[in-house]
Simulated assay, not measured.
Amino acid sequence: MTVLRSHPEWTLGNVLGYLDQGGARASALRGLTLRELLSEPDAGCLSIPDDDGPVIDVARLERAKRVRADAFDQLVEEVLVEAGRAVGAGYLRARVGGPRWKLQGALRRLVAANVVVRTGSTSATLYQHVGRR
């Protein structure tokens, strides 16, 4: 929805052309209903990120606010699996939310469990999923 709302000058032809390009954003837009498009901006359940990653699941963000420890770790692991590549903490925070310390704790536990590999340091730190628990 964010993509469409940020281009109010687009015609339906432009939208069809965008959908033909494929990718995660196009597949999310294919499932968009007119009701969702015309509803309030915050009423949707998907958000298009600026980091070229997959669409952000707002429902997962809401779930992540209410869970702790193992359940939060599972959400972080889920996002890492979906990423399919090494990603930074900002990418993860956009998809699971929460305070920095909560995400850091989850990543520390996942690294200790040999489920996630950490490379780099400080702002260049990347995390990648390597296996199931």
Rank of each mutant, 00 (worst) to 15 (best):
M1N: 02
M1F: 06
T2L: 15
L4C: 05
L4Q: 04
L4S: 02
R5T: 01
P8H: 13
T11P: 05
T11Q: 10
L12V: 02
L12P: 12
G13W: 06
V15Y: 15
V15G: 14
L16G: 13
L16C: 14
Y18P: 00
L19P: 13
L19T: 04
D20G: 14
D20S: 15
G22L: 12
G23N: 08
R25H: 12
R25A: 12
R25G: 15
A26G: 04
S27E: 15
S27F: 03
R30M: 12
G31T: 12
T33D: 07
L34K: 06
R35E: 15
E36H: 06
L37H: 07
L38R: 12
S39K: 01
S39R: 10
S39H: 03
E40N: 11
E40M: 10
G44S: 15
G44K: 01
L46V: 11
S47P: 01
I48M: 07
D50K: 03
D50E: 13
D50Q: 12
D51H: 09
D52Y: 12
G53L: 11
G53E: 05
G53I: 02
P54K: 02
V55K: 07
I56T: 12
I56L: 01
D57K: 06
V58Q: 02
A59R: 14
A59E: 14
A59T: 14
R60A: 08
L61G: 10
E62G: 07
R63C: 10
R63Y: 02
A64W: 05
R66T: 10
V67S: 06
V67E: 11
R68N: 06
R68W: 10
A69R: 07
A71T: 06
F72K: 06
E77A: 14
E77F: 01
E78M: 06
E78T: 11
E78G: 00
E78H: 12
V79G: 04
V79E: 13
L80I: 05
L80C: 05
V81L: 13
E82V: 07
E82L: 14
A83I: 06
G84A: 03
G84T: 01
R85S: 14
R85G: 01
R85Y: 10
A86Q: 08
G88C: 10
G88I: 06
G88E: 01
A89D: 07
G90R: 10
Y91T: 00
L92Y: 07
L92S: 01
L92N: 01
L92K: 05
R93I: 03
A94N: 08
V96P: 00
V96A: 00
V96Q: 03
G97D: 06
G97W: 02
G97H: 00
G98C: 00
G98S: 05
P99R: 13
P99Q: 13
P99F: 02
R100V: 08
W101F: 10
G105H: 07
A106Q: 01
L107V: 04
L107H: 04
L107N: 02
R109I: 06
L110V: 03
V111F: 08
V111G: 10
A112Q: 12
V115W: 05
V116K: 04
T119G: 01
G120S: 03
S121H: 09
S121W: 13
S123Q: 13
S123N: 11
S123M: 10
A124M: 08
A124K: 14
T125E: 08
Y127H: 13
Y127L: 07
Q128S: 11
Q128E: 14
H129Q: 06
V130M: 02
G131Y: 03
G131Q: 09
G131N: 08
R132G: 04
R132I: 03
R132F: 03
R133C: 04
R133H: 11
